[in-house]
């Protein structure tokens, strides 16, 4: 028996919005420590890794490890039927071929359930090595989304250059070029507005705007985003999900042909 309850459907709606741009379907691996999802986008360029810890749920029970392959388009149709303040419960029997989403209104007067067919997905799992990154940037998630959106207009690639002083985002193309520099915050009044840089070595890397823009669909989950970078290894874009886990995106830097 698997059962996971969240007191507000908003979190699950936001999680789904954060991954469905990149993934059409994905396997939710459930065990007694929580729910894990790891999947590459269709073109195998980026990797999405989602962790929802058992202790972050209002109720969580998972008697046996369970892998639930879901069509995220179908899941989105179902999640659209939940109000933000509904309680949402996901339920499945052991070895089931369906999952049930149950929504309960705050006053308990409306209860809906949606049963969705599960899929057998043959997905490759990747081992992500522990890495000490040369630069780690923490910045407002909204600001990062804005920069990716703005600079995408000027080119299909975004260059991120990180030094001790700050981080510079650049794009160039037919129109011309664009640069946005963010200085490291000197006095932190509001932590969620701060730009913090932990640098071992400066790095300059080039990334595809298209994927960065997809990653920023996770922006509503949190105030701050963390970018971890080293030369010649994938960028990690991490959004923490308050009290329950995180979604991380991995994207390989573009390289000279």
């Amino acid at each position: 028996m698997f059962e996971a309850r969240l007191s507000s459907a908003t979190t699950l709606k936001k999680v789904l919005d954060a991954i469905k741009d990149l993934l059409n379907e994905a396997t939710f691996d459930c065990n007694d420590s929580g729910i894990q999802l790891q999947a590459m986008d269709n073109s195998h360029v980026s990797l999405v890794s989602l962790t929802l810890r058992a202790d972050g749920f209002d109720k969580y029970r998972c008697d046996r490890n369970l892998s639930m392959g879901m069509n995220l388009g179908s899941m989105a149709k179902i999640m659209k039927c939940a109000n933000n303040d509904d309680t949402v419960t996901m339920k499945a029997q052991d070895n089931a071929d369906t999952v049930v989403f149950m929504f309960e209104s705050q006053n308990q007067e409306k209860v809906s359930d949606y049963e969705m067919k599960l899929m057998n997905l043959d997905q490759e799992h990747l081992g992500i090595p522990e890495t000490d990154y040369a630069c780690i940037v923490r910045m407002p998630a909204m600001e990062f989304a804005r920069i990716c959106r703005d600079l995408s207009q000027f080119g299909e690639s975004l260059v991120i250059c990180c030094t001790k002083e700050g981080v510079k985002f650049s794009a160039s193309g037919d129109v011309g070029s664009a640069n946005i520099k963010l200085a490291q915050t000197t006095s932190v009044d509001k932590e969620e507005e701060a730009v913090i840089i932990e640098m071992q070595e400066p790095v300059t890397l080039t990334f595809a705007c298209r994927y960065l823009n997809s990653f920023t669909k996770a922006t509503p989950l949190t105030n701050q985003v963390q970018l971890s970078m080293s030369m010649d290894v994938p960028l990690v874009v991490e959004y923490r999900i308050q009290d329950i886990g995180h979604v991380r995106y991995y994207l390989a830097p573009k390289i000279e042909d």
Binding site: M40, S43, H44, V45, S46, L47, E124, H125, L126, G127, I128, P129, S157, T206, A208, V233, P234, Y250, L251, A252, K254, I255, E256, D257
Partner: peptide
């Protein structure tokens, strides 16, 4: 010209 490598080039397939 820069090209986009697959993420599979960086992580081992388990």
């Amino acid at each position: 010209r820069k090209v986009q490598p697959s993420i599979k080039n960086y992580f081992n397939i388990l």
